[in-house]
Amino acid sequence: MRRLRLAESLVACALAAPGLFLLVALFILPVAGVLVIAFTDWQFGAASLNFVGLKNFTEIFADAAFRKALANTMLYTAIVVPGTIVLGLAVALAIESGQTMRAFYRAVHFLPYMATLAAMAITWEALLHPTIGLVNQVLTAAGLPTANWLRDERTVLPVLAIIGIWQNLGFAMVLFLAGLTAIPRDLYDAADVDGIDFWFDRFRLITLPMLGPVLMFVVIVVALHGLEIFDTVQTLTQGGPNHASDVLLYTLYRESFQYLRTGYGAAVTVVFLMIVVALTLIQTRIMDRKVHYQ
């Protein structure tokens, strides 16, 4: 019996070994490495390193450009999350409220989530072109003011956020659709008999609370997507104009790989990691707590 168990352990080790090795080499050690680098003065290509404590962190937080990037990322996320949630939920409710063309609407709204964002960003650039872009042409035709959307400090971040909403809306919609289907029909019948038959009451008293766990989940995941904004900034604005669209990952990329400021880049990476981990922990806490609907 014992030998049998030993044999099973050996087989398990053999099967798990490649994966384990790669997990350690490509995930665990790199994370440890970046944490170490963030607290040293090591520069890319240097032969020696010294621990410098929080120096890299004081440096980045002293840098107005980084603070701007952090604030921009937060602002961007703060627009994308509610925008995506409200629009995604509205679309899901609209699709669910009827029987016709459901698959079509679902597929169409999901399209941006899977299309290559870098390529679509180029199209957005064409749409937003100050003179020949469709957006300004339509606005002019309607007699509304136009702007140089991606070159104006005041508009660039909201415009990027709209692209973010455009991209994430289908993802939120799909999760909401799944959540809506999971609400028992009986509850709506009971609500009808009890007099909850005005659409706003139904939404407020039944649909929204029953979607609660899904809603919290979508908020967190879309927030994570928001924090990870990079492709549109890299393609469309390169952080400009005047750092108005600098975001965390773009700063990380620029400092680490263009300027090779390794310590700075590592510190930015750690800040980014902390934010992501914090959000994920909140998510797990919420998911653990949401059992009272069962």
Binding site: F27, I28, V31, V34, L252, T262, T269, L273, V276, V277
Partner: peptide, 19 residues
């Protein structure tokens, strides 16, 4: 370890993997 790997976004690994 797998769950930790799941938690870490790819961009965090970019710098050490580049090195």
């Amino acid at each position: 370890l797998v769950l930790i790997g799941l938690l870490v976004p790819g961009q965090v690994l970019a710098l050490p993997l580049f090195i």
